[in-house]
């Protein structure tokens, strides 16, 4: 379902495997959470806003399951994923 907010904003769903720093309300690692953002915001701007100090951990971003670049303008209802690309063990 596409969620709409005020005329000048829209809702997206964000799932991040990188912790926002400082903590963002509603965030739980690897779980989708709803986020309101201004119309016209790009994916890169959203990542900076949410992850803040931890943006350096960003490895790859996806919108609706597809790899996306930082300049992509976001649309209502987009499902956004943030991943680091370092793992091990």
């Amino acid at each position: 379902m596409i969620m709409m907010k005020k005329d000048d904003s829209l809702m997206v769903t964000v799932r991040s495997f990188i912790p926002p720093h400082p903590h963002t309300e509603g965030y739980e690692l690897g779980k989708p959470f709803a986020f309101e953002l201004p119309k016209g915001m790009t994916l890169g701007e959203l990542a900076e806003k949410i992850l803040s100090k931890n943006i350096n951990q960003m490895g790859i971003m996806a919108v609706n399951g597809k790899v996306a670049g930082k300049d992509q303008v976001l649309s209502p209802g987009d499902k956004i994923d943030f991943y680091a690309l370092i793992d091990g063990g």
Partner: peptide, 24 residues
Amino acid sequence: FKDKAAVWKYGTGHMMEGYSLAGN
């Protein structure tokens, strides 16, 4: 540590969807 890294929640392997998207 919880604000700096994510590994505490599920251990290693939580980035696999991203790895797959990236071709890694």
